[in-house]
Simulated assay, not measured.
Amino acid sequence: MKREKSIHKGVGHLLFAALALALPVAVAAGPSGQALSFTCAGCHGTDGSSVGPSMPAIAGMDPEVFVDAMQAYRQDERNATIMNRIAKAYTDEQLKEMAWFFASQRLRLFPQTYDAALAEQGARLHDEYCEKCHEKGGQPGDAGTLAGQWMPYLHFTMEDFLNGKRTWPRKMKRKVDAAIEASGDTAIPALVNYYGSQQ
């Protein structure tokens, strides 16, 4: 009987030791990118395909674009309503985990009402001024996602650039200025309608 108790005790100690060794590894690993992304679901959808027209879809986003955006929010270098506070809660490693999760998600597009004539004009403007950076009509890539993106979000974002609330990426201001010079006040609405027409 004593021997049996001793064996049970020994096994119990072994199990406890194994658990004690495994616990720091589990804690060090932290939550997965998917688990971290749950905090984004209210605005950007559970898979990054936003259903709110003023919130950008981030599914399929290039991981570096995601991390750069979040770091800019964290450092108050990008105009935001709430994102700058949210971004401050994450480490660089957590941002990378989230970035890879969203990059692995398939972008789901939702129907939007758009002006066909403006969209046609926007397609021409895109080909001439935007395609070099925003390839394949603005499909997800290392310059972000424009094709199928929510039109109100695109409109608000362009207003931020034009009003100086957001820093222009390299070469973008020159290209946008050229598009506006070519088409006047209809240039931005035309581009927004073109991207929104890709459903």
Rank of each mutant, 00 (worst) to 15 (best):
A190Q: 04
R166F: 06
S32C: 09
R74D: 07
D68F: 12
A119G: 04
E120N: 03
Q105S: 14
L191I: 10
Y153W: 09
K171E: 09
A143F: 12
E135A: 15
V192T: 01
S49H: 10
W168A: 00
D47N: 10
L14H: 08
A72D: 09
A119E: 01
A72H: 08
K136L: 11
Q112A: 01
R124A: 13
P56R: 04
A28Q: 13
A29I: 07
F110K: 08
R108G: 03
G10L: 14
S104N: 00
E4Q: 15
A147E: 05
T145I: 14
G12V: 08
D185N: 11
H134K: 04
M61E: 06
A119R: 03
A143M: 14
L154S: 00
A182H: 12
E4L: 12
E135T: 13
T167M: 10
F161W: 03
D92T: 05
L154N: 01
S183F: 01
T113I: 06
K132P: 14
E64Y: 04
R174L: 14
A59M: 10
E97N: 11
R106L: 12
R166H: 13
A20E: 01
V11T: 10
A179V: 00
F66N: 02
C40Y: 06
R124M: 08
Q149R: 06
K173M: 00
Q139Y: 15
L162I: 12
D68C: 06
P24C: 09
G138F: 08
M1W: 14
G148C: 14
W100P: 12
T167C: 07
L162T: 09
M151K: 10
P56N: 06
A190P: 06
I180P: 00
S183T: 02
D115Y: 02
S37E: 15
A143C: 15
C43E: 12
K96I: 12
W150Q: 04
N84F: 11
D68H: 09
G48H: 06
L118G: 01
D127Q: 15
G122C: 00
G137N: 15
S104E: 01
E77P: 04
M83Q: 13
M151C: 07
R108C: 05
V192W: 00
K171A: 13
A72R: 02
D76K: 07
A123I: 08
K175E: 03
A22N: 03
H134Y: 14
A143P: 13
G45Q: 11
Y129N: 00
K171S: 15
P63G: 06
K5T: 09
K132D: 11
K165G: 14
S6V: 04
M55K: 15
A119Y: 03
S50L: 12
Q112I: 00
W150I: 10
A69L: 04
G45K: 12
I58E: 06
S6D: 12
Q139R: 13
R124D: 04
V65A: 01
T91Y: 11
G10P: 05
E135R: 13
E93A: 13
